[in-house]
Design a protein around this nucleic acid. Structure first.
Length: 576
RNA sequence: GCGCUGGUAGCUCAGCUGGAUAGAGCAUCUGGCUACGAACCAGAAGGUCGGGGGUUCGACUCCCUCCCAGCGCGCCA
């Protein structure tokens, strides 16, 4: 039950009856004095029709009131032509009673589509760093939400497992095994491994030559080289999976479709483009020239499909992937959760793919960009040594901070329990910090801020949840099935109840433009309303009828909080 | 040079297809724990929404222009 949409449709119907096509534009009221919802569209409609806005509002209101004769809501004309809508207590109680019996908590499903979500996609030559956090958490949350809304979601981890950067890594592996140094322990710290390899590449001429040979060997599928390569890939993938598991990211091994998967298809991409007369040769490279974009010289920008040395750049792999997703997987919508710096690349990619017939017009291929992480100085974030900050380190730090906070606040808990709590709180805090910000803007990485456990953070929401559990436990009714009777009267109860009824609005709003921060905002406001209710409305000491109603309200709040956080990939706790 | 982002309170950020007096959190100040858990609550203070034009009943939101910052623009991914 989406109250906003219900009111929108109702008002629209009556506007049409009056010969007005414009949408009523129902929104949640900007301030409490204006009721719960407000219609903003009457003024614009009146203007277009040359009518007096207040008169039109009056006509709409009387049309609704005479025909609907509903005691669900009250309408009031205000200001230059707003219609303020107040939902009746009776209706709110009724709605809560319905959604409390619903496992979906009032969230309806959408028309089922086949989605593909491409996110995380780390380069396996390096260890995952903090920069991967955004694509990974945002893509994962959106995948969960799309699924919850009834869509089919094909998660895809387009990992980078191919390219010249593997030359020096393989050469270094080869060197180590010749020197009989145990590979396993060296590979434990991939970042260090990568650093050593690239240092050798820069400083040792012989090693650099060896590395180049390995690139050629890899491309020509030399069996020994492939064996080394797959050993490295396997090890690196293990690192990633460990991070996903710890971060509660739903990506699994089965979602990996690596770049190398498309190796055999690249020739045919060039062939197809050539047959469509889209290829031009420039300085020995096969290019698609795009009139739509001009470069520094004012000339059309070429997208290089095959380099003059015969190699394929990554746009060719991406074209092959797009074709595969369109033709083999037959998806309706593909969402690429990738860094905003690649915006131009994706525009060109989708443009060429469509032009070449690799994708269809009725399919949607979209880049969902995210900002990058900056230091306090506003520069891209790096360690003091200039390296990337390991994601695993960030998680470790967060959990350790959560641990000391837990033992500080609640030392009565056993050590074992504290460790479990610290894990959930620490991971939740990091993910929520990412998800609660507008994905589009860059943001400043700051240990203090990122790992803060106060205010609009995951721990605040988790804490609200434990308070609810505390009440339910104390009531001794937590095990027995709660009824769905609501007799809410108090303004604090009504405020919270209406918010609960708006859960579906919040979930649906996320997928309009893939902004999980909207769900975060909702959950935070919900928790704030709960805290206010908690301070003002005693539950367990109230008289029986009110007590039951309030217990139900608490229970439903807990379920919505849990579900909402689950959609963001964050867990809750009974105690913390 | 062209293009894409962004500029909102001291800091970090919301602000939903233009709507009523621009909102949170952090930090600061004041009050509230013999407790349905104070990781909390109540309150105070804090703003010429980068500057300037324009569109209209109404602009943080749309248009123009300028300033500032970041990113991108043929053989890295």
């Amino acid at each position: 039950m989406n109250i906003r949409k219900f009111l929108e449709e109702k008002t629209r119907k009556h506007l049409e009856k009056l010969g007005v096509e414009n949408p009523p534009l129902i929104k949640t009221a900007s301030r409490p004095e204006h009721g719960h919802y407000q219609a903003n569209g009457i003024m614009a409609a009146a203007k277009e029709k040359g009518l007096n806005p207040r008169e039109l509002a009056k006509e709409v209101v009387s049309s609704i009131e005479t025909e609907e004769s509903s005691d669900s809501f009250n309408l009031e004309i205000a200001g230059p032509g707003f219609i303020n809508i107040t939902i009746s207590k009776a209706w709110i109680n009724q709605i809560l009673s319905i959604i409390s019996k619903d496992v979906r908590l009032g969230v309806s499903t959408q028309k089922r589509k086949k989605f593909l979500t491409d996110y995380s996609s780390p380069n396996l030559a390096k260890e995952m760093h903090i920069g991967h956090l955004r694509s990974t958490t945002i893509g994962d949350a959106c995948s969960r939400i799309l699924e919850f809304l009834g869509h089919q979601v094909i998660r895809t981890n387009h990992v980078g497992d191919w390219g010249s950067q593997f030359g020096s890594l393989l050469a270094y592996m080869n060197k180590l095994s010749k020197e009989e140094i145990a590979l396993a322990s060296e590979l434990k710290d991939l970042e260090n491994f990568y650093r050593k390899a690239s240092q050798l590449w820069r400083e040792d001429q012989k090693f650099a030559d060896e590395a180049r040979k390995f690139v050629v060997k890899l491309q020509s599928k030399d069996p020994e080289c492939l064996e080394l390569w797959s050993k490295f890939i396997e090890e690196s993938m293990k690192h990633c999976q460990a991070v996903y598991d710890q971060l509660n990211i739903s990506l699994k091994q089965e979602h990996v479709v690596a770049e190398s998967f498309y190796n055999e298809k690249l020739e045919s991409i060039v062939k197809d483009l050539t047959e469509k007369n889209l290829i031009a040769i420039s300085d020995g490279a096969k290019c698609v020239f795009l009139e739509e974009w001009v470069g520094k010289d004012g000339e059309p920008t070429p997208a290089i499909i095959q380099k003059s040395d015969g190699g394929f750049p990554y746009i060719t792999t991406d074209l092959a992937a797009a074709r595969h997703r369109s033709q083999e997987l037959n998806i309706d919508e593909a969402l690429y959760f990738v860094d905003a710096r690649q915006t131009l690349h994706f525009r060109q990619l989708f443009h060429i793919a469509l032009k070449a017939g690799f994708t269809r017009k009725d399919q949607s291929f979209r880049h969902i960009p995210n900002g990058i992480i900056l230091s306090k100085e506003g520069k891209p974030y790096k360690t003091r040594q200039g390296g990337a900050v390991k994601l695993a380190e960030v998680l470790k730090e967060s959990i350790s901070r959560a641990k000391s906070l837990v033992s500080d606040k609640n030392s009565a808990l056993s050590e074992q329990e504290q460790i479990i709590i610290a894990e959930i709180v620490g991971i939740g805090a990091i993910k929520y910090a990412e998800l609660s910000k507008n994905r589009n803007t860059d943001y400043v990485f700051d240990w203090e801020k990122m790992l803060s456990f106060e205010g609009n953070t995951a721990p605040y929401l988790q804490y609200a949840y434990t308070r609810i559990k505390g009440i339910l436990n104390k009531s001794k009714r937590s095990n027995e099935k709660l009824s769905s009777d609501f007799s809410l009267q108090d303004p604090y109860e009504i405020q919270l109840a209406l918010k609960l009824a708006q859960f579906t609005e919040a979930v649906e709003s996320v997928v309009e433009d893939y902004q999980p921060n909207l769900l975060c905002n909702y959950l935070f406001e919900l928790s704030q309303f709960f805290m206010t209710f908690y301070e003002n409305c005693p539950v367990n000491t109230a008289e029986e009828r009110i007590k039951i109603s309030r217990l139900n309200l608490c229970d439903l709040t807990g379920r919505v909080l849990k579900k909402g956080l689950e959609l963001l990939g964050i867990e809750v706790l009974d105690r913390m």
